Simulated scan of single mutants.
Amino acid sequence: MATKTATQNEARQAAQAYLDSRLTNDSATKSEKPFTVPEINIASSFSSSLDDRKAIAAQIHEACTSSGFFHLTGHGISEDTRQKILALASRFFKTLPREKKEALHVRHSNYFRGWEPADYTYVNPGDWSAEDAPQETKEGFNWGYEAGMDPAGGDGQYRELDGADVNGNVWPSEEDVPGFYETISEYYSQVLHLARHLFRLFALSLDLEETYFDEMMTHPGGIARLLFYPASGDPQPLDPKLQDKEIGLGAHSDYECFTILLCSSASGLEILSPDDTWVAAPAVEGSFIINVADFLMRWTNGVYKSTIHRVVNRTRNERYSVPFFFSINYDQMVQTLPSCVTPDNPSRYPPVRAGEYILERLRATAKDA
């Protein structure tokens, strides 16, 4: 592995310090209002009225400066498309033989693409050195942007996380998992279109021109995952002091700008509130869950909050989810947004290239990092 730059080290250390501070109560604050995950119906944001779009943007701003999470409805993606990708996840994890999965193992990839067994990563890098850290039970499959999945067609300039002019995706064969790529592509294309629309609303929410991010989304980073969480063997309440013996995904914050999460009906997502309480995310039928990720928190100079969350499957039902982690063009150099710098809040982060930031965060989670 190449020697890390000072910026890469800073990115990893800053992210880990933020996570550690939240998990050790250092930054917990008491709130007079109960912690809630608001529902934002964005149907009116597809209208030609700028005022309508600004009204939705104002709701997004409120959510991103408080909970860091919101339910998204009125998004326009059909329930059929959503259920097809969840069914594909079940088919992949349950029917593809172990030896076929091993051939797709993420250890063969420079970009953490392919099949990810539970024992290969800890989503919180600090857990590698924690003697009492429970093994995560999740199993995953990871992929990223391809121009063929882009409803805009792409601009032919896609670069990987490290700047290489390649595409790092790996796929099971059509023979092994019929319809896999077709279903992935259909879902990814629609969610990518939604992500670009959302980023325009994010721009308005930050007092920027609506098109501010457009030129940074022409060949964007967009890592997605199929995730499988086995049913719990003991769905009893957990002792918070002992964490969880069957934790699906450990306490963490996401890395990119924001996440669009689709999950099956089984419960499991828990959010760490500002007053340091784990709160189960409520279910809203037909919604996606959106959350601010670390790169956007960094980009906004801390104005938008990247919220710590985890997955604990306490039921006897299996759980599937499909998170889509949206970024910008990986070759884009980013510095603090101008609308987020004030005399009282000067820029606290050095410029960093988008892909380098995310790759360094991913490397920190792997067994052989």
Rank of each mutant, 00 (worst) to 15 (best):
T3H: 03
T5E: 03
A6D: 13
Q8V: 09
R12S: 01
A14K: 12
Q16K: 02
S21H: 08
R22G: 14
T24Q: 14
D26A: 11
S27I: 13
S27H: 02
A28Y: 05
A28I: 08
S31T: 04
E32K: 13
T36P: 04
P38V: 08
P38Q: 05
I40E: 13
S45G: 05
F46Y: 15
S47T: 15
L50D: 15
D52C: 02
E62Y: 05
C64E: 03
F70Y: 14
F70P: 07
H71W: 02
H75V: 12
G76R: 00
R82Y: 06
A87L: 10
A89F: 07
S90I: 00
F92E: 07
T95E: 14
E99T: 15
K101E: 12
K101Q: 14
E102Y: 00
S109C: 10
R113D: 01
G114Y: 11
G114A: 06
E116M: 12
G126Y: 14
D127T: 06
D132G: 06
G140E: 12
G144F: 03
Y145I: 12
M149H: 13
A152L: 15
D155M: 13
D155F: 11
V166I: 15
N169A: 11
N169F: 09
P172K: 00
E174M: 00
V177K: 07
Y181M: 10
S185N: 10
Y188S: 04
S189A: 14
S189D: 08
Q190M: 05
H193G: 15
H193C: 12
F202C: 00
S205T: 04
T211V: 10
F213R: 12
F213L: 07
F213V: 08
D214W: 04
M217S: 08
P220S: 09
P220K: 02
G221E: 00
I223C: 05
I223Q: 13
I223F: 07
R225P: 04
L226E: 03
L227C: 04
Y229P: 01
P230I: 01
A231Q: 03
S232P: 03
S232A: 10
P235D: 09
P237N: 09
L238Y: 01
P240H: 01
L242Y: 00
I247T: 13
I247L: 09
G248E: 13
G248H: 09
A251W: 05
E256T: 03
E256C: 02
L261H: 05
L261A: 06
S265A: 11
G268E: 12
L272W: 05
P274D: 07
V284S: 03
F288W: 11
F288H: 09
N291R: 02
N291L: 05
A293F: 00
N301G: 04
V303L: 15
R310A: 01
R310D: 02
R310S: 02
V311F: 10
V311M: 03
V312Y: 11
N313S: 06
N313P: 04
R314V: 06
N317S: 14
S321I: 13
F325K: 09
S327C: 11
S327V: 02
T342W: 00
T342Q: 01
N345L: 12
R348P: 04
P351E: 06
A354L: 01
G355P: 01
G355K: 03
Y357E: 11
I358M: 08
E360Q: 15
E360C: 15
R361M: 04
R361K: 11
L362F: 14
R363A: 13
A364Q: 09
